[in-house]
C-alpha cells in the first residue's frame, strides 16, 4: 500500500539523482492527469510525456484501472528545454487502482502540485455516468480528448462541457490548426473574404480511420462563414499519412472553387482561381507535441465550441 507522502519522498530523491546539480528545478506549468482503461494506452501516454521536449507538464499522473490496491511508479525525467538552457525536470507517476470507487481519484487529488492548472487527458469518449470520470473532471481546469482515436467522442463533447462545467478540447482540433491557417490564407484578401458567406459546398478527403478532423473542419467553416454549405466527406487510403489526417479540402464559393491539397507530409498546395498554385508548409506535429501545445491554452476555445455545434453527421 503506497501513500502520497511516500511517493513525494521518492520523487524528491529521484529529482536529486536525475538532475544532479540542478536538483529541484521542475517546470511550473501545469499538472497533467491522464486516465486510460487500457493499460497499453496508459503506458504509451507515460512514454509520450517523458519524451516531451517543450511544454512539459510539471507533474503527470497517469492512471489506469486494475484490481487491488493503488500502486504507484514514480519517475523523473530531466533535460535541458533548449540547447544550453537550464535542466528542467518533469515528474511522472504511473498509478493503477480499482477502476471504480474513489481510491485512485483521492490519490490523484493528493498528488497534484498546488496552484497549477490541471489538464485531464481522457482519450476515449468521456463516460458521463462514471464516477471516476466525474471525480477527475471536478479536479480539472480543462479536458483534453482525442476524437481521431475515438471518433464518437465528438458527439458527446458538447454535453460533457455543459454537464461538468468544463472547458473541453480535442487533439483532433489541434491537428487541424495548420489546415485552418492554410485555408484561411485564401480569404485574407477582401475580394475572397466577401465570397465566404456564399460558401456552397465543402468536399473533404481524409485518410481512412477517423472522420473527426474532417467533421471539425466542416463545422468550423460553417460557423466562421455563417453559411450552410453542403458537405461531402470521403475516406481515402494514404500510406504515408496517419489515420484521419486531412488530404484535400475543396471549397465552392460564389461559383469559384478553391482547393487545398496535401500530396505529402510537410507541404500543401493552394489552388485559387486566377492565381498561380502556391505552396505552404503543412506538417501535422507528432502526438507528444500536440499534447504539449494543448497545455498552452487555458481559456475556452470559442471557435472549437462553435464548430462542435455545426458538425456534420459522422460516418456510421
Amino acid at each position: 500500500m503506497t501513500t502520497p507522502a511516500a511517493i513525494e519522498r521518492e520523487l524528491a530523491e529521484l529529482r536529486g539523482k536525475t538532475a544532479g546539480d540542478h536538483a529541484g528545478t521542475r517546470t511550473h506549468i501545469v499538472d497533467l492527469v491522464a486516465y486510460a482503461d487500457d493499460p497499453a494506452i496508459a503506458t504509451e501516454l507515460g512514454e509520450v510525456v517523458a519524451m516531451m521536449r517543450h511544454h512539459r507538464p510539471s507533474r503527470a499522473l497517469i492512471a489506469s484501472g486494475a484490481p487491488g490496491d493503488v500502486t504507484a511508479e514514480p519517475a523523473v525525467f530531466c533535460s535541458p528545454m533548449q540547447e544550453g538552457g537550464a535542466i528542467v525536470c518533469c515528474e511522472i507517476v504511473r498509478l493503477t487502482g480499482p477502476p471504480a470507487g474513489d481510491a485512485l481519484t483521492s490519490m490523484i487529488a493528493s498528488l497534484l502540485l498546488p496552484d497549477l492548472p490541471v489538464f485531464l487527458l481522457w482519450l476515449s469518449p468521456p463516460p458521463l455516468d462514471r464516477p471516476t470520470f466525474h471525480n477527475l473532471a471536478a479536479l480539472a481546469t480543462r479536458l483534453v480528448t482525442d476524437s481521431t482515436r475515438f471518433p464518437t467522442t465528438l458527439d458527446v463533447l458538447g454535453s460533457v462541457a455543459r454537464q461538468e462545467h468544463l472547458v473541453v478540447t480535442d487533439l483532433a482540433w489541434t491537428k487541424i490548426t495548420g489546415w485552418r491557417e492554410v485555408v484561411a490564407t485564401i480569404f485574407d484578401d477582401a475580394e475572397h473574404a466577401a465570397l465566404l458567406p456564399s460558401l456552397e459546398h465543402v468536399a473533404i478527403q481524409h485518410v481512412a480511420g477517423s472522420d473527426a478532423q474532417a467533421r471539425l473542419l466542416v463545422g468550423w467553416l460553417a460557423t466562421a462563414s455563417r453559411a450552410t454549405p453542403t458537405t461531402s466527406i470521403e475516406a481515402v487510403t494514404h500510406e504515408d499519412m496517419r489515420p484521419g489526417s486531412l488530404v484535400r479540402v475543396e471549397l465552392t464559393c460564389g461559383g469559384h472553387r478553391f482547393i487545398v491539397d496535401r500530396p505529402s507530409e510537410g507541404m500543401a498546395t493552394i489552388d485559387v482561381p486566377g492565381r498561380p498554385i502556391r505552396r505552404a508548409a503543412l506538417r501535422v506535429p507528432p502526438f507528444g507535441t500536440l499534447v504539449g501545445e494543448e497545455l498552452e491554452f487555458l481559456a475556452p476555445d470559442r471557435a472549437f465550441e462553435a464548430a462542435l455545434e455545426r458538425l456534420p453527421p459522422g460516418a456510421r
Binding site: 485552418r180 480569404f187 485574407d188 465566404l196 455563417r226 491554452f297
Partner: peptide
Amino acid sequence: MDTNPLRDTFRMHRVPGPC
C-alpha cells in the same frame, strides 16, 4: 486581412498583409 472571418486569434497568429 482584418475582414477574414476565418482568422480567429485564439490559436492562429496575426499574419501580415501581402508584401
